[in-house]
Design a protein around this nucleic acid. Sequence first.
DNA 1: CTTCAGAGCGTACGATCGTACGCATGCCGA
DNA 2: TCGGCATGCGTACGATCGTACGCTCTGAAG
Lengths: 189, 189
Amino acid sequence: MLSVMATGHTDPRRRERIIDATLDLIAEEGIANVSHRRIATRAGVPLGSMTYHFGGLEELLREAFGRFAERIVALFDSYLAAPNDRERARDAVTDLIHELSEDDQRYLVLTQELYTLAARQPAYRELTKEWMRRSRVHLERHFDPDTARQLDALIEGMTLHRALTPEPHDRALTREAVTRITTRDPAQR
Amino acid sequence: MLSVMATGHTDPRRRERIIDATLDLIAEEGIANVSHRRIATRAGVPLGSMTYHFGGLEELLREAFGRFAERIVALFDSYLAAPNDRERARDAVTDLIHELSEDDQRYLVLTQELYTLAARQPAYRELTKEWMRRSRVHLERHFDPDTARQLDALIEGMTLHRALTPEPHDRALTREAVTRITTRDPAQR
DNA sequence: CTTCAGAGCGTACGATCGTACGCATGCCGA
DNA sequence: TCGGCATGCGTACGATCGTACGCTCTGAAG
């Protein structure tokens, strides 16, 4: 062999780069179109690395989505931990919805793929449950538990609709929805 | 060949059975795990039928999801066309959310797979946009357009959370959320 | 009864897949 | 300096895939 061949001991970032490449590929091509070979090419690592660093494709996917969930939870934390009163919490939720549905559809796609897996496999369902639990903890600092659950569902739905719909809700409408869902015993019209 | 071989002209339900088998398979195994062969086995048709009746796997999937979307739209219609006043509309929406997230996760899984495709491919996005448009038409018979959009998003989010969460919202909580989101200018607490 | 057009499918091809295994490589102790 | 060993990867195997093509068979026309 004339090229580099084995490198001996090295590079703890190999795993990270593989995981990142996996998430990128899933976002761009869908889980149906990822393979060891395509991930390896994308990450710039040899095919053999795949089964060396990860027990198999399934294990790699679990780890990749685990990483994704961690990042999302961190994002939720960063938005929802800060506000100290109810009005600011509503603002933060509004911001979060717009952040999640903005720009490319990376977040949307990865979330959808995760939910799809969650609907069928308990391991993935744990990821999403933990995610929902964490965000509810934040919301419950400002709202009662029932309201928190309703608001959590609204965040989900508005994020999705904003991303899939030609004319997404503008900020004022989002804010209005957040206000409505977090307000009890309203006088009906 | 000793078995049946070709059957000559026949059976217009071949296509239907293939499409149904496709949806069943996707619901059970995920889009990543469907193939011409597995669909054929499931539908009880020969492999050759696949490329005979459909231009290819992609075309089959589009048609299958088209059929799914039609059925869902019909379900939305059946729930949302009936009510004649605002209160009954709220009840109907509540019923719809519970219907969609009940029992098996067939609806959840297929919807997630469709949204995932919609996020990446315009053809599928049209399907979902049409679906959203149709449901909004119903909702707008009872609520103003902005409210209809917010309610539509809430339906989405609550359906998902009910299906994925260990203790789904009970009916009273769902109804409360529907009431809140459809009530304007509430007095804040 | 004979013919034949076209509906429908059996089958085979090339591509791609996941995975395992043996070998190349560089580091460390002596 | 040199041996041994753990790290890391090149490669090959068997399975599975989508698809195209030519053959079989049916029903209708005559």
